[in-house]
């Protein structure tokens, strides 16, 4: 029967296949074609991005002069601007703005951390169970993905162009990441004390206060300190849309940014960010 079918469809009996290096070589998957096409497509897309990329031709042509000016002026920091002396006011100066940036970042992180606590519990399987946790996690993802700048634009519109709007922006935006990391910390902790508290008849609030908080506080603080690092960076630019802090000085310096002001702002940002970085990583190391 099989023989008949073979003849009918003219199928030759398959020789028992023996693998030889030559045969295997022919079977080699041609991955490189896909890779090449992908690379070419990527490069074409990059090239297309530069197509009609607008710029100021005169400025570009005087690039060398700009460069020389930069080298010459970078050392000439505008100290009046730095300390907010005449013709500026102290509250417009870089020193004030730097501290205000720190204030926005610090208070914002604190606010975010406090608000993130309930969210962290809401997204933690240990506390609220699997189903609610999925919902809480989704909520945190939405907050995390929502662009900080848009939040700032909305809040600046609502509360005016001031540092408070910046503080709120940082605080609300931080909830996303802090809440997620909080919930992970809570899920990873040792559950046996909760059982013990259950055994002595503790309420949910008691369990959180005496069973969970003491265990997770160092980790939560460490996460918040890490977030402070990030927030100092964002707080230093949110001013450009009116949310206070160093970014504001970029506006105050006018549209004609000169190297004397840019240099001062850059120094302030670098010193501030590096300092916060060092302090926060020192404290985080101490916590562990």
């Amino acid at each position: 029967m099989i023989e008949f079918l073979r003849r009918l469809f003219k199928i030759k009996p398959q020789p028992k296949s023996v693998l030889t290096p030559e045969k295997v070589l022919k079977r080699k998957p041609k991955r490189w074609i896909m890779n090449l096409l992908f690379t070419i497509a990527m490069m074409a897309a990059v090239a297309y991005s530069f197509n009609k990329a607008t710029y100021n031709e005169i400025r570009l042509r005087t690039f060398d002069i700009s460069f020389q000016t930069m080298i010459r002026q970078l050392g000439m920091i505008n100290w009046d601007f730095f300390f907010g002396r005449e013709p500026w006011e102290f509250v417009d100066g870089i020193v004030f703005m730097t501290i205000q940036t720190l204030a926005i970042a610090f208070l914002g992180t604190l606010l975010g951390a406090i608000l993130a606590l309930p969210f962290g519990f809401l997204a933690s399987k240990n506390i609220v169970g699997k189903h609610v946790a999925v919902f809480g996690d989704f909520l945190l993802t939405v907050i995390r993905v929502f662009p900080e700048i848009i939040l700032a634009i909305i809040l600046v519109k609502g509360f005016g162009m001031n540092a408070f709007a910046g503080l709120l922006t940082i605080g609300l935006h931080s909830i996303g990441m802090l809440g997620k990391l909080f919930s992970e910390t809570i899920d990873a902790m040792d559950k046996s004390p909760l059982e013990a508290l259950d055994a002595v008849g503790a309420t949910t609030f008691d369990k959180i206060r005496y069973g969970i908080i003491p265990q997770v506080l160092p980790d939560l603080t460490s996460v918040a300190l890490y977030r402070l690092d990030i927030n100092v960076r964002s707080a230093s630019v949110l001013g450009i849309i009116g949310a206070g802090g160093l970014g504001t000085t970029l506006l105050l310096a006018g549209d004609n940014w000169g190297w004397d002001t840019i240099g001062a702002i850059m120094i302030a940002i670098i010193v501030m960010v590096v300092t916060v970085d060092i302090v926060s990583s020192y404290l985080r190391n101490k916590l562990i």
Binding site: L19, T20, E22, L25
Partner: peptide, 26 residues
């Protein structure tokens, strides 16, 4: 860029054959 002469590829497969794992090549 991962370009090798054909003899090299064959040699590699022959070595695999010697070790008895030609079928595992890819």
């Amino acid at each position: 860029f991962g370009v090798f002469p054909k003899e090299d590829k064959l040699l590699a497969l022959q070595s695999l054959d010697t070790m008895g794992i030609l079928d595992k090549a890819f």
